[in-house]
Design a binder for these strands. Structure first.
Lengths: 250, 250
DNA sequence: CGCCCTTTTGATTCCGGTCAATTCCTGTGG
DNA sequence: CCACAGGAATTGACCGGAATCAAAAGGGCG
């Protein structure tokens, strides 16, 4: 098995302290009330944040940059389970352990860490904090739902299109039409369970159809959402939920 | 768009009351302490439990049978987001609404419903109940993780194999080697984002390889887990996490 | 028995992975 | 300032695998 593909850097002490500049990119922080326990962190691209099966001692929140939870298959392939953007909270483990690995995927990603024990204590005392943690868990589940829906598409072009629309909704808060991709094609491929080449092909396909506009390779402008969705938006599908005649016994 | 494929029955009042026989299949119930608020329900195959975008007024727990959360694509395809087996809790919405549809997929599925307001009140009063709800949410997230990992496989045979191993771990509590599939090939196909034919082909492939044994079409015996996994177990991958030379600057 | 649903199997087409080569982009050093 | 190097991205050729269309076999229930 070779490792050249995902080119992870060497394992390191989980915490990597470096002086942190004042926060740019102010994202609303549901965990702000625990600022006293917060611990600022900064990672270079590919730096491990935690490893699978390690004790889940901290909760994390992305401040800027991007990170990913992922697993490594025995064939060397990396699968990204969860793409973490500014504002996202992650690191809820299962049974006190992390199920997957986590690493930064862009240089200079800054993350805030909250000691788990502290979080639990504060949540037990203050129901508002408990609610905030709950909300963060719900948001994490929503990300997983979104990925499952994206992976459920049949063709690569649909997957990439759905991914772009998904990103447009998450980056820049609302549903802006301009996306600055902070990560590589390989990251996208590992997220969508496609090969890098297919991701690239799908993007040029979408460009040729007039669905998107590519400026450089990291700058995507959405031109025609209908074409991107290929008529396959799940909201439409839900609207179409007029169920025809009962086919079975009733 | 045609609807013959998933053959859902007509929309109905969400609640369908029918006399409920004494519970078979006693699964440990983390929400047992709320028995006073529990509401027993029973559904035929294909019966809707709730619709997407409907208010999330209840939390549900499968007692016996099986259900699924799913979405309907505009091409008529159904995608199952979450497969619900005895013991599974579902119906945590997002923002007070359900994001997906839910329906029973086997006849006579019995489910317990807990009024959401009641759950919240009890959780606020008793931290043990809050913890139980939290645990149920974590279990739901784990199911989503599992599905994402399954969908991340490249070939259909790997997907089906991973699905069988996943099922073996969830049915019958432990990791028994005999699986009684309570659902159709079509349900499996909609869960794995494959066609029915491919699911069937993959199963016969696995059988011919000596990985499984098929008795009838609903009875699967796992003979050789290594062959099924195809050397693609994520636990192995994690063990292989010895990261080679740093490729980047350090 | 006979109907309908489920499952399996076959033939064909198309899509995505793989291998391979070229181009693009960025940062470095002469 | 330009040349160079290395990684990132695109494009092409080829092949294997999954969807699709089609048909047949199995199974449960009236």
């Amino acid at each position: 098995m070779s490792w050249d593909r995902s080119s992870m850097r060497a394992a390191e002490p989980i915490w990597r302290h470096q002086p942190v500049p004042p926060r740019q990119n102010p994202v609303p922080d549901p965990l702000a009330s625990m600022a006293s326990a917060a611990r600022p962190l900064r990672y270079g691209r590919g730096r491990m944040i935690y490893a699978a099966d390690s004790p889940a001692r901290y909760l994390y929140r992305v401040v800027s940059g991007a990170a990913a939870r992922f697993l490594l298959r025995s064939d060397g392939r990396r699968q990204i389970i969860d793409l973490l953007l500014p504002g996202d909270v992650f690191g809820f483990g299962a049974g006190g352990k992390h199920r997957f690995n986590a690493a930064a995927i862009v240089d200079g990603t800054s993350i805030t860490g909250y000691p788990r024990a502290r979080v639990n204590a504060l949540a037990a005392a203050d129901p508002r904090i408990a609610a905030a943690v709950n909300e963060a868990m719900a948001a994490a589940a929503a990300r997983l739902h979104d990925l499952i829906v994206i992976l459920g598409h049949t063709t690569a072009e649909e997957k990439v299109g759905a991914f772009l629309l998904h990103l447009a909704g998450r980056l820049s808060g609302g549903s802006a039409d301009v996306i600055i991709l902070p990560f590589t094609r390989e990251d996208i491929a590992d997220y969508l369970a496609l090969s890098v080449e297919t991701v690239s092909r799908s993007l040029t396909l979408l460009r040729r159809r007039g669905a998107i506009r590519l400026v450089g390779s990291r700058h995507v402008k959405i031109l025609n959402r209908a074409v991107i969705a290929g008529g396959d938006d799940d909201r439409e599908a839900v609207d179409n939920l007029r169920i025809p005649a009962c086919s079975g016994r009733d």
